[in-house]
Nucleic acid binder design. Structure first.
Length: 583
RNA sequence: GUGCCUGUAGCUCAACUGGAUAGAGCUUCUGACUUCGGAUCAGAAGGUUGGGGGUUCGAAUCCCUCCAGGCACGCCA
């Protein structure tokens, strides 16, 4: 199904050709309602290129433009914009089309790719905390959207289950472990011994050396240390699984760092052999002498002591994802501090001859209320699990106030959908690069541009249909309706009130917005769109009675409600947010 | 020191990547309920887009230069 935007873009392109002009400019939604629904700056761009009067060029374009099937006559405005206003009948027709489409008008991509999305990636022996929200929630939303658009997505949890911290964990396990505490709360005890050992190691060189020895033994395959490591991984995974269940997040594969252990010596050997890496000061290093910004920032892939580091395992990870999983794209949803690291990893991949599209999708930091970066080590980080449970508790409290008649089972279900949805939406509704100020009240507020506001719009729609169901009226669930004779005819909408026309226009834009999210990996575009839909719906809801209005307006408005509900449901689903039937 | 990111209403954020008079929410103020769920709607107030230059028909957006904050820069991940 073609969107208004792409239809008009094609017509514009034809008109430019007919006027003997090259393709130029773009056709976008209007920046302001008083300029209509869509606009193009083609005449301005051409005017500049050719040194001609843009308004005269606009005249020439409009003279060759026939959009009468969907628009009023185009208007030339300002310095040479051409503005388009959709006709109500075109909007009504489009709405009926979308109503009959499972995908709500969203086309599948013409170039489907196999995409590995690396997101979440918590560390073993450290609890997931608020800092993991962004990667996890953003990565999940991108995965959902890419899948919906027809890409083949492999969700990979690159767990930090190997590395220097295990020297400390094992040292702590052997010297500081409290068995009873381990029984009661395994992860908390592991975190405790890790933190205490970390503190000891920073002040005592002997402890530091002991930790290093434990790590060497682990990496050499020492049975006792491997067993301890296995136990720690298992305890941590339990904690992760609980959080993922709350968040409704699922992975296709969970290949942590340890998965690549066997590959590391081979990686280094290969890079040395091919001349990409060289030996420097006893370590194996890749230099980037031809890239000015990396010229003095070499990448170490084998330490002087023979150990490997995360660069080595990330190179091995590239191999696996491209050679074995046959990925055409890999998206790394990893925080901005690692920009330099991934630049180097991607450059090494390029030098090895890989052609795949590797992207580091960064995001801003999590800040405390003091606007300072939240610490990851031994700070007062809020464990993610507690945060999510607190969100549900607060949602529950509000439900008790607003809708005490719900059953206990419903309350639990709704509180979870609202609480978790609020946390996810708070994150996804803003531009990913800006730093995120962690505020309980803001995150859990159920007013304004929040998930509960959108959920409430959906709930109201469901309420209308529950009420309508009491009377013998069939609700339109597709673009066709069944007449009493049994004949199925295309549903035509009668759109008269500005509020319903405006709502219908918004709904037709769903298909334009969803693909746009992946242009720059910005789910906040979708979130903001859904907020506008909910807003338009509430305005419509105030201005246009549905059940009390006369036919054909009643069926038409019911259809509009149905479509709004489906767009909200689908849109929130693409963000990983659930909707309740009541709240 | 070098590089990257950020700076927009009192607060939290947008602005479809160069478009028209920079928009929302929260807060404040004024209105609208014998309601299809008021977790709502209508309206008002609130701005030298950190400062200063430049590029052009047009700049929050691009370039230069300062200011402020953050992050990263060979054996942590």
């Amino acid at each position: 199904m073609e969107t208004f935007q792409s239809l008009l873009a094609k017509k514009l392109s034809n008109a430019l050709a007919a006027a003997g002009l090259p393709d130029a400019g773009e056709l976008t939604p209007a920046t302001d309602p008083r300029f209509g629904d869509y606009q193009t700056n083609a005449a301005l761009v051409l005017g500049k290129q050719r040194g001609e009067n843009p308004r005269e060029i606009a005249e020439k374009i409009v003279g060759n433009l026939d959009v009468s099937d969907v628009c009023e006559a185009p208007v030339i405005a300002g310095p040479g914009f051409i503005n388009f206003t959709l006709t109500p009948s075109a909007v009504a027709e489009k709405t009926a089309d979308i109503l009959g489409d499972e995908r709500l008008g969203v086309a599948e991509t013409e170039s489907p790719r196999r995409i590995v999305i690396d997101f979440g990636s918590p560390n073993v022996a450290k609890p997931m905390h608020v800092g993991h929200i962004r990667s996890t929630v953003l990565g999940d939303a991108l995965a959902r959207i890419a899948t919906f658009l027809g890409h083949e997505v492999i969700r990979d949890n690159h767990i930090g289950d190997w590395g220097t911290q295990f020297g400390m964990v094992i040292y702590g396990w052997k010297n500081l472990l409290d068995q009873r505490a381990l029984q009661q709360n395994p992860l908390a005890e592991i975190v405790r011994i890790y933190k205490e050992t970390n503190a000891l190691a920073t002040s005592d060189p002997q402890v530091r050396e002991a930790c290093r020895q434990e790590l060497v033994k682990l990496q050499a395959g020492d049975k006792e240390n491997i067993d301890i490591w296995n136990e720690c991984v298992a305890f941590s995974m339990q904690d992760f699984e609980h959080v993922y269940e709350l968040l409704d997040i699922h992975y296709d594969i969970q290949c942590g760092e340890s998965f690549y252990n066997d590959q590391l010596p081979g990686v280094v050997e290969r890079l040395l052999k091919s001349g990409i890496a060289e030996i420097s000061e006893g370590a194996v290093v890749v230099f980037f002498r031809d890239i000015p910004e990396l010229a003095d920032k070499p990448c170490i892939i084998r330490k002087r002591d023979g150990g490997f580091n995360y660069a080595t395992s990330d190179i091995a990870t590239v191999d696996y994802r491209l050679d074995d999983l046959k990925a055409e794209s890999v998206w790394y949803v990893v925080g901005a501090p690692q920009i330099l690291h991934f630049k180097e990893i991607f450059e090494i991949a390029r030098r090895q001859g890989y052609q795949a599209d590797l992207r580091h999708i960064t995001f801003g930091s999590i800040l405390g209320e003091d606007r300072k970066l939240m610490k990851t080590r031994s700070g007062e980080n809020v464990p993610l699990r507690e945060l999510l449970e607190e969100a549900c508790r607060r949602a529950r409290k509000i439900i008790e106030e607003k809708n005490p008649d719900l059953s206990e089972a419903e309350k639990i279900d709704v509180a979870q959908k609202i609480g978790i949805g609020a946390v996810k939406y708070a994150d996804l509704s803003q531009y990913r690069m800006t730093d995120y100020v962690f505020l309980w009240d803001k995150m859990l507020s159920l007013q304004g541009n929040t998930a509960p506001y959108l959920q409430n719009a959906y709930v109201r729609i469901r309420s209308i249909f529950r009420k309508a169901g009491e009377s013998p009226v069939t609700t339109p669930l597709s673009g066709v309706r069944e007449e009493t004779s049994g004949r199925r005819v295309a549903l035509t909408l009668a759109l008269t009130n500005p509020a319903e026309i405006n709502l219908a226009k918004r709904l037709s834009q769903f298909a334009e917005i969803v693909p746009q999210v992946l242009n720059d990996f910005r789910p906040n575009i979708l979130a903001n769109y859904l907020f506008e839909v909910a807003n338009a719906f509430h305005t419509f809801y105030e201005a246009c009675p549905v059940l009390k209005s006369e036919e054909p307006g009643r069926s038409s408005r019911l259809a509009l409600c149905d479509l709004t509900g489906r767009v909200l449901h689908r849109g929130l689903d693409l963000l990983g947010i659930k909707v309740p039937e009541k709240m």
